[in-house]
Design a protein around this nucleic acid. Sequence first.
DNA 1: CCTACCGATCGGTAGG
DNA 2: CCTACCGATCGGTAGG
Lengths: 200, 200
Amino acid sequence: MSKGERTREAILAEATQLASVAGLEGLTIGGLARHAGMSKSGLFAHFGSREALQLAVLEAASRQFTRAVITPARRHQRGIDRLSALIDGWLHWDGGDMLRGGCVFIGAAMELDDRPGPARDYTVAALRLWHRILAGAVARAIREGDLSGDLDPDEVAHDLYATMLGFHVSKRLMHDPGAVDRARRSFVRLLGKALPARAA
Amino acid sequence: MSKGERTREAILAEATQLASVAGLEGLTIGGLARHAGMSKSGLFAHFGSREALQLAVLEAASRQFTRAVITPARRHQRGIDRLSALIDGWLHWDGGDMLRGGCVFIGAAMELDDRPGPARDYTVAALRLWHRILAGAVARAIREGDLSGDLDPDEVAHDLYATMLGFHVSKRLMHDPGAVDRARRSFVRLLGKALPARAA
DNA sequence: CCTACCGATCGGTAGG
DNA sequence: CCTACCGATCGGTAGG
């Protein structure tokens, strides 16, 4: 990795944190430069425009998400185990201390819903992909006999995601100390089945 | 109502629309003045600070919410009918054309979760109140025998709210034309019971 | 309710 | 990667 690439990665790590707290709109080039300890224009040169910076942050967040949630879940048996790992991974992704302001995509989903552009398009695509992954895991768990065949994977995936949004608000806005446990109970109700004990 | 009061109300109506689209952070005094057709300082004089303007917008949104959702539901029988009216009213509040960007409080919940201050405090209180209203309606429906006694009103209220967040994303970000019907099916699953046909 | 203004900050550019 | 700068806009003030 060249020095320029390393700098860029360091900037993006800082930018992702900032965006998770202040949102993509709150992510300013000047503010980010201050955090990164470099000049505005020096930082700017890495991206070329604010829009490109926002997009780069979303891409960086996607890579982090894959590393933190998707990849670890692949180590678990297909079926309810893997679905449960995805859910646990997500709870840790949004509720843990990895991102100081929680999931970047939830913030983006709310901020960008009325703002057309590449950042919005990327967010829509990322959410669609996440939805497909969840629905696929549910469908597989049904086929494995872990979940009832009465469940509709697409609808369940949607309800799981809504529960994640509820968790985000409970945890981040309401500071509810029981947010994780409550979300877990909702997941269990949605799946009609207790989730396996988690490792982490 | 004095002329000053009428002006203030007109400004707030415009401000609520703007905040629903651009968020409370996107609500600038200059931008709002342009929309309202008056000078920045003339508008500013009505509120005294940007923070006060944001708070006034939240208060105005609360009054609108009461008028659009809470009060109409009171005309329905206590129990499942009233709960159903609250849910329908909310779906129309967030998904209808009353607010061009949907529910102001959802935007505020996401924007303000890491920003202490009166606007955040107000949002937390408003959400708590809405949660209590939902939980109360669920409890009453249980007592009336409309819903199963196995349901926990507090947990159900929380899940209903999460479903509303999911609806907001489906409708506003994903532009899913089936968002309302899908949300309705989720509500039915959460309550374990078909909702009465709605009037509107 | 206005004009005229303040310092700070915005995204972005020139030139090195 | 920097300094120095651009026009526009930010929240807010003075004075009327």
